[in-house]
Nucleic acid binder design. Structure first.
Lengths: 408, 408
DNA sequence: TGATTTACTTTAGGCGCTAAAATAAATACT
DNA sequence: AGTATTTATTTTAGCGCCTAAAGTAAATCA
């Protein structure tokens, strides 16, 4: 496996510089050296090339005094216009498109209501092509190139083959979507699970920097999970790892949307909560199989205000969640379990039962030092993660690309 | 993080050569180049150094004609006497010591009956020191150096800190054992979970070469598991990952040795099977909390011969195992689940119920392409894995060490 | 015996890195 | 203002590793 390291070394160091600049904003050469463990002579050499390629620019030294005497630092930073990426989030009845620049900043975002379940695979492809084309002509004029597209999809996807294996938002299966889009737009197309995108964003936050093994559970209409092992999403053999929602609470338990019984999702997801409540409580009307945000908020309110039935429903959901988390702790022993998703709205009503269940299920040795926390939900997080992942994945291409275009 | 690759590159390539030789036996330089993706000029250079350090030897070309015309290959192979490692397996009431040579071959093995549960931490250390010393004087005379010691322990260990956090074989906890042995024997001391040792051996077998994500479940007095992710054992935050035995089958279920209820172990382990059977069946007498191999075989025989109660007990054990595996599949989506351990003796009696339970628990999409197989049990496997792990971990040291000794 | 084939070694040259020296651009001091 | 000091960046010199290609070695084939 040993590569001719003389080649890879320069590439590695160049990518490290680019990523440092993306994470930290403009940085001086000497600091880039210290951060990445390379000499400043090497940074000079690397940055000279990047400058010439138009991927970075020098910033005038900041007006306020730098920090004492000596030659002031010359900060270099990514040129946002060097490249851009598009992230498309595909969820039930909604498609979101976001454009991010080379520096990782969000440039544009748009939502479209689409009845995703009625689409055929060809429809979907046509739809995506159309939306991306529109965004390209309207938004991407200032950019030197479109580096990549990230498709963030709810469900099971194979990143390797670029195939959507199964998604609750789609009525078809095994759709090889990446290859066609890649051909159409001449750039890499990544296919990611939505939970992995969110977990990547969370893991990048300084508060969680010391958690290389991070589990993120997303509560919502269904239940998703992402497991980061040493900071990278664990995908499993077919990309169907981390299907927490369909791990079991109770053999022969409640019926799940997947058709089996006793899944955590059958107790803790929005549809499960609503199903349990709908028979007995008066709630805003609507599609009871796909409860609206309004309906769910009403139900959560009832529980928090002390309605006994609603409380019981949330307690049972919390207990199921707790037993599920206990299994996750026993099997993954992560540093941190983070609970988020639109369903965190009801987390306060579940929390006590959840903790009770975990204590009931696990001895202290197996709890280890794992923290369990919840985290506010932001619907844009998925695409922010997708943008970051797409940029990271395409840095090598961008580098190569700007080499050849400048040479020509 | 980028290291001065100019330095690491040579080290990487040298280690790759050593490991290729260990895996495949003597190999010609040109083939070492092809296997590891380096030029044969580099292999010549690397092997010249290793030869001079005494880590490898040239083999006379084999008597039977090589393969046609041309200069025959000169095979080079590891010198078994260049180093040795000791692996100590610590399990309930037994300590096994095995010596392996630099080429990875077992050189010596011995078992000792020890009432491990009555030992204090100091007793254990003294015992290990004594046994290792004895082995050193008797067995290690032909070796140039003792490269390392591997402690393979049942239970939760922290490899990083070299601390036995908890083991069913010991009555004390949090024993920092590695550091003291390292000081005493002047070599690296690795602490490993026994299941990880076994999984490493299995993963190295050609039959499982295409399974980078491998789960090994060990049935026995207790239930252990190891998860290999991309071929390396996943340890989790505190080394307590992969505690399959204490993942849950049933909230409020059968009482487990850990003190909680409903763990898989409380249904599927030897003690659980025996406990369920002891009241109603006539079985060889003995310690019913620690059933002997003989007792367990008798019970297995009853089930296989059609005794209805024994069959029911094994079926329930299989169902619990199946539900546990279903969770493992949902969460890890491995390429292969391998079931082994002394408890595989009863696997035939559990298998049907296990598969039924898995089908009942999971939709086909989540089963993916995961194979579930059992695998014959060999009590020496743990130490074979420990030897391999110890050699792998100490190759760098051995290299450095033989450099300095030869120079002096 | 010499041609051919295959394996191994030597040579020549490139790349990437670093340390150290040189240069640049500020502030501090007198 | 002019020089010393401090800090950042660039240039230089040199090292280690790698590869391709040329050279050498050791067989078989005819």
């Amino acid at each position: 496996m040993a590569l001719p390291s003389t080649d890879t070394s320069r590439l590695d160091n160049t990518l490290a510089v680019i990523r440092t600049l993306r994470d930290q904003g403009p940085v001086a050469r000497i600091d880039l050296g210290a951060i990445n463990g390379i000499s400043s002579a090497t940074v000079t050499s690397i940055s000279a090339v990047l400058l010439q390629q138009g991927l970075i620019t020098e910033r005038p030294p900041e007006a306020p005094r730098p920090n004492g005497r000596g030659r002031p630092k010359t900060l270099i930073g990514l040129d946002p216009s060097a490249a851009c990426v598009v992230c498309i989030k595909l969820s039930i009845n909604e498609v979101q498109l976001v454009v991010g620049d080379f520096a990782g900043q969000i440039h544009h975002s748009e939502h479209h209501a689409v009845t995703t379940l009625t689409l055929s695979a060809d429809d979907l492809e046509a739809l995506l092509e159309e939306k991306i084309s529109a965004v390209c002509t309207q938004q991407l004029t200032g950019f030197q190139r479109l580096a990549g597209i990230c498709l963030a999809v709810q469900g099971v996807v194979s990143s390797q083959s670029g195939t959507i294996i199964w998604s609750p938002a789609l009525s078809f299966r095994n759709a090889p979507i990446s290859a066609r889009l890649a051909e159409r737009f001449h750039c890499s197309v990544l296919l990611e699970n939505d939970a992995n995108c969110i977990a990547s964003v969370l893991a990048a936050q300084p508060a969680y920097a010391d958690c290389p093994n991070l589990v993120v559970i997303m509560l919502g209409y269904g239940i998703g999970m992402s497991v980061l092992i040493n900071g990278v999403p664990y995908l499993g053999a077919n990309g169907s790892a981390a299907e927490f929602g369909h791990s079991k609470y109770q053999p022969d338990g409640a019926l799940c949307a997947c058709g089996r019984r006793g899944c955590i999702e059958a107790y803790t997801s929005d549809y499960a909560l609503y199903r349990a409540a709908a028979e007995h409580l008066e709630l805003p009307s609507g599609d009871s199989a796909h409860p609206s945000e309004q309906q769910m908020q009403a139900l959560t309110q009832l529980a928090l205000q002390g309605d006994p039935l609603a409380q019981r429903i949330y307690a049972e959901a919390g207990r199921a969640l707790g037993y599920g988390i206990a299994n996750v702790l026993a099997l993954f022993n992560p540093d941190l379990v983070l609970i988020t998703g639109s369903g965190v709205r009801g987390f306060d009503a579940m929390q006590a039962a959840m903790h009770r269940a975990i204590d009931e299920a696990l001895v202290a040795e197996l709890m280890g030092s794992t923290r369990i926390e919840s985290c506010a939900w932001d619907r844009d997080m998925t695409c922010m993660g997708g943008i970051a992942i797409a940029l990271h994945a395409t840095d090598g291409d961008t580098l190569l690309d700007s080499q050849t275009t400048r040479e020509a």
